[in-house]
């Protein structure tokens, strides 16, 4: 049971640019080719190729023992993935939408995250899937789930913003011996402006390290995922007025790269945190207290945040646009801080 790689996971080899969705597919394909322990589980990922077609063609090439169509049972197949990981395999579980990870919350937090603690050994397992709003998906197909798991020691959380990072981070996640939750923003999946030509050579992006997406010295914006692009758009507008924004793309949320944020704050003296997730209990609160601990002496203004409002994600377009952080919201907060 072997076929050639389908086109959507062969673009880098052909020297063509890839979308974030294709980068995810390439990472999965290449890791499965590289390591026979890697296999996939999820709903409709085999014959159907996945709800977003990330795994189209995988079943024909890798066979049904490595591309497993599961019952609609997120808790059950995440638990089964844990058992396979105990036995030395490296499962990658797809949530059709990350909103549906909640049935697996129990097994993820109580069992999988505690494996190393309990002496049950490594738990090399990735749970990946689409997140985020802006697609008029309503409250059950638009959520960001990072903070539901951020409070759980033993897990790692990754949230890329571009194809290069998505491919390298997913490969790193698959090779990691800890359970990793990997969030992919639907708004970036096929976004034309995100297409990148990637290196043909095998590479990983180490977990736990942020990157500087834009250098500046007036203000630090710490953000991730789709909000990196909104922040860069806001920075471009602010630059017209001579305001130089530094944008830090966190890439990995757990563990959080405190050093990178603190280093930027020590340069700019101002910190704005932007996330698409809702406000209360969002990652901005944790970053703020960490910078209070690590960089208080360098701060020349309050730490501010721009986030979604505390509400379920609306279905109506007008409501969802109001709910989500906008370029204008980021610009307004940034100007306030710069002038503080």
């Amino acid at each position: 049971m072997s076929t050639d790689a389908p086109a959507h996971v062969s673009r880098t080899r052909a020297g063509e640019p890839v979308t974030l969705l294709e980068a995810i597919g390439e990472a999965l394909w290449e890791e499965m080719e590289r390591d026979e322990r890697v296999f996939l589980m999820g709903e409709d990922i085999g014959a159907y190729g996945g709800a977003f077609k990330v795994t189209r063609g995988f079943l024909d090439h890798f066979g049904p023992e490595r591309v497993i169509d599961t019952p609609i049972s997120e808790g059950g197949f995440t638990g089964a993935a844990a058992g396979a990981a105990h036995m030395g395999l490296r499962p990658v579980v797809e949530m059709q939408f990350m909103d549906f990870i909640s049935p697996a919350y129990d097994i993820l937090t109580n069992y999988i995250a505690t494996s190393l603690y309990r002496g049950a050994g490594p738990m090399p397992l990735v749970v990946r899937g689409p997140v985020g709003g802006g697609n008029r998906g309503g409250p059950f197909h638009s959520q960001n789930v990072e903070m539901a798991f951020f409070h759980t020691p033993g897990l790692k959380i990754v949230y890329p913003s571009n194809p290069h990072d998505a491919k390298g981070l997913l490969k790193a996640a698959i090779r990691d011996d800890n359970p990793v939750i990997f969030e992919e923003h639907k708004g970036l999946y096929r976004a034309p402006h995100c297409r990148q030509v990637l290196a043909r050579e095998d590479y990983v992006v180490p977990l736990g390290r942020a990157r500087t997406a834009l250098e500046g010295d007036d203000l630090t914006v710490a953000t991730y995922g789709l909000m990196v692009h909104r922040s860069l758009d806001a920075a471009a507008e602010l630059a017209k007025d001579g305001i130089r924004v530094e944008v830090i793309d966190l890439r990995t949320l757990l563990p959080l790269d405190d050093e990178a944020i603190a280093a930027s704050v020590q340069k700019t003296g101002k910190l704005l945190i932007v996330h698409e997730d809702t406000r209360t209990g969002g990652i901005a609160g944790e970053i703020a207290i960490r910078m209070n601990e690590r960089a208080f002496e360098w701060l020349d203004g309050p730490i501010l945040r721009v986030t979604a409002i505390d509400s379920p994600v609306p279905f109506s377009g007008e409501l969802e646009d109001y709910f989500l952080p906008s370029v204008e919201d980021i610009g307004t907060a940034a100007r306030y801080l710069v002038n503080y």
């Binding site: 296999f39 023992e65 490595r66 497993i68 808790g75 059950g76 197949f77 995440t78 638990g79 089964a80 993935a81 844990a82 058992g83 396979a84 990981a85 105990h86 036995m87 030395g88 395999l89 499962p91 129990d106 097994i107 109580n110 069992y111």
Partner: peptide
Amino acid sequence: GFMTQVLAGAALAFRR
């Protein structure tokens, strides 16, 4: 109840 899930996955690894 959870461990029936986990052991099912381990069993699939044996078969694989």
